[in-house]
Design a protein around this nucleic acid. Structure first.
Lengths: 223, 223
DNA sequence: GCTTGATTCAAACGGTCGTATGATTGAAAC
DNA sequence: GTTTCAATCATACGACCGTTTGAATCAAGC
């Protein structure tokens, strides 16, 4: 067993760390990574400024921690649903696979307090400048890709390259959908509600399934 | 006629303005708006720092100028192609409408020197924090929406609300596609080339047309 | 040649940034 | 009670931020 005073220290640390992560998540979601200062974060978290560089080593690593903290349970949920789909013996449909892939993100807003803003965070992570995603993608997405890739390829009967173009387009739709909906509000004159997550997920799956099938068809016809 | 020294002045101004806009466009595209400083811009443009606040009133307005400078000719090209489609007497297909809508953005990289980075700029404009898009959308997109909206509704036989969800998803795919392709490179293990604009546009149109049709079908079946 | 007025310039403004430092705290270990 | 050490703290560092200022520049008007 590790020394007790270390355990105590870790407990105290986790309180401060948690507060920082929570505040950072909210602020990053609302204003983006570059536009959110550590002072603003520590101020809202009611912790000392130096705590960020103590618990995380830099702002950069704080960003990664914030993103991964949210992404990790979502990815586990994705794999869990995929596992269920694949134990049935019958091949999952594209719609089922997309539900396993997109669903957990839309579910997650109900999973806890004050996570309503976090979809924007993921949306930002996909679009923010810098090498953030380049560094984050392997850690955050490799397993997902390894499991969902073959499943989609079987369901669509499409080759790897064409599928990846499709996934790329699908992720773009998802990120934009989650990014808050200034565009959607403008397009619809305020009629469409970007916070209608059920409607958004339903449409995203239907739209994406059809789009992926179209890419697969083309592949099959042309190739 | 305006006074000659004003004309001369305007000409000199346009040189500096142009250099600022060019440098800003490139840097904004690469690093985002918040992460790009005016000092970096004026340094690369080889103009004085104060020139930005002289010719544009603030960094904020510089951003708007950079975006609108690129968006404007693209929107005019969009409407030009749409006009051609609609003079034929036959209703344009969804694919033709999407080509009119997406095509000019993909064309534009060939239209001049060093515009290769600008798609990333538009991608950023769609996703950057702040009220940028909220302020920019009406000026940049109202006419496009007024012309393309009815055309899509006729082609798809879909109601306004469902179409706007579809356009929202489509714009997300487009923005992600144009944003540089770190995700695509990762997904495909480097095999897919995000700079293959022809392939990207072809897939985007096929994918989007199918997705929009699916939303329209649902609408017709359910409603 | 002097005036005019738009543009350019160096310099500085007050502020905020991410990070580092060294003292202080406080609970466990002995 | 002293030692130990993770954690917290106030504070400061140097750098960079967007913006402002007032003088210098320079071509055109008279």
């Amino acid at each position: 067993m590790i020394e007790a005073h270390q355990e105590q220290a870790l407990h105290a640390a986790s309180q401060t760390k948690q507060r920082i992560l929570d505040a950072a998540e909210r602020l990053f979601s609302q204003h983006g990574f570059a536009a959110t200062s550590l002072r603003r974060i520590t101020s809202e978290a009611q912790v000392n400024l130096a705590a960020v560089n103590y618990h995380f080593r830099s702002k950069e690593e704080l960003i990664q921690a914030v993103v991964l903290r949210k992404l990790d349970p979502i990815n586990r949920r994705r794999l869990e649903i995929l596992d269920q789909l694949e134990t049935g013996g019958v091949e999952p449909t594209i719609e089922e696979l997309l539900h396993a892939f997109f669903g957990p993100i839309f579910e997650a807003r109900r999973a806890g307090v004050q996570v309503c803003e976090f979809p924007k965070l993921l949306a930002r992570a996909h679009t923010e400048p810098g090498d953030l995603m380049t560094r984050l993608l392997p850690a955050a997405f490799s397993e997902i890709l390894a499991r969902f890739g073959p499943a989609f390829r079987r369901a669509l009967k499409v080759d790897q390259l064409e599928l990846m173009w499709g996934m790329h387009l699908a992720i773009g739709s998802m990120a934009h959908l989650l990014s808050g909906g200034a565009v959607l509000a403008f397009l619809s004159g305020g009629e469409a509600d970007a916070n209608d997550y059920d409607g958004a997920l339903r449409r995203l799956i239907r739209y994406t399934a059809s789009g992926l099938r179209a890419l697969a068809e083309k592949e099959n016809v042309a190739g």
